[in-house]
Nucleic acid binder design. Structure first.
Lengths: 176, 176
DNA sequence: AAAAGATTGTTGTTGACGACAACAATTGAT
DNA sequence: ATCAATTGTTGTCGTCAACAACAATCTTTT
């Protein structure tokens, strides 16, 4: 299936011999102008979801880039932060608090445990659950992650302005 | 591999016979209270990315739910909206404008073309590219999608307040 | 105390999505 | 005529949300 076109290209191919060298100027100009930035978004302009999606994409990319040296992704950072602030939490509690599935948390903790940042200690009161703790290595690591995350947050402030950043945080407190 | 625990559970199993019926009250109460909502987020509170992630998740879920009857997802809606507002655009132009990869757009257009909402018309000026258009069925469908999307937007306004919603849109215009 | 129901961690699958890398066809520039 | 760039396409990889099932364990009911 290395063919490129389903329908039109083949048909066009047969007529290719007849093609004349058209008005290139109109093509290259109109095309690149259109590909530039005069394309209307219509109803998308009024949708918060679209703006938020683009923003979140930008934020995640900057976060990943800023913490690339320590190889920590946003979700991993959020898990370690919550465990650090609330030692002994169960996986269920962490998942609920962060709005991630407990199935997903399993793999996240697996990776964090492999790197010796987090340890699952069998709960003393419930043999089903684990008490989550940062290792000593995890604690010092998290301190560095927080410094880098603060740097990332400064990037956000530079991008949208710090007063807008704070306003945004305030608007969205009901989701955190 | 139906075993449940890697390490701790097995070891705990041997000592299971000795266990006493501990203070259940402390367990069930403390545990469910913790699982409730007194878990601190620590540094996460100050991170716009975390708030935005939670918000975006909420928005997407509401969008999908509100447009479930027509089976249209946010990305599909954005593609149809842009094509509807700018007929004849190439795939490259749409991808660039919406910040999605052209590789991804291929599948999106495949599904929209299968449902007869969009058609790829061979460009008259560039035999590599397609001119994207809404079909007549796609135009009437998009009109309905826009009504449903407006309803979704009202849900957002109810959730965070309309003045906050507009403030948010204004803050994030640089990303759209 | 035994049975029934709920919870916790785990495994697996599905699908949307972003990022990359290749590729053929075509275009544009040299 | 040749070579670099563009366009649509295919494929792979990894992240992520959503479900569904399951064993072990706890809780509640009887």
């Amino acid at each position: 299936m290395a063919t490129r076109q389903k329908t039109s290209r083949k048909a066009a191919g047969t007529a290719a011999a007849i093609r004349r060298p058209r008005a290139r100027a109109a093509n290259s100009r109109a095309q690149s102008a259109y590909a530039g930035d005069d394309i209307g978004l219509d109803a998308l302009i009024g949708h918060a979801g679209y703006a938020v999606r683009r923003f979140q994409l930008w934020i995640f990319q900057d976060f990943v880039k800023t913490l690339a040296t320590v190889d920590i992704r946003p979700t991993q950072y959020s898990v370690m932060t919550v465990i650090g602030a609330n030692p002994g939490l169960s996986q269920m509690a962490v998942a609920k608090r962060l709005g991630i599935e407990r199935a997903r948390l399993v793999h996240l903790l697996d990776s964090l445990e492999e790197r010796d940042f987090v340890s699952r200690i069998p709960s003393a009161t419930d043999r089903r659950s684990h008490a989550l703790h940062l290792t000593s290595r995890g604690k010092t690591a998290l301190a560095q992650f927080k410094r880098l995350a603060a740097e990332h947050e400064r990037h956000v402030a530079e991008k949208i302005g710090n007063e807008n950043r704070e306003r945004l945080l305030q608007i969205l407190t009901c989701f955190t």
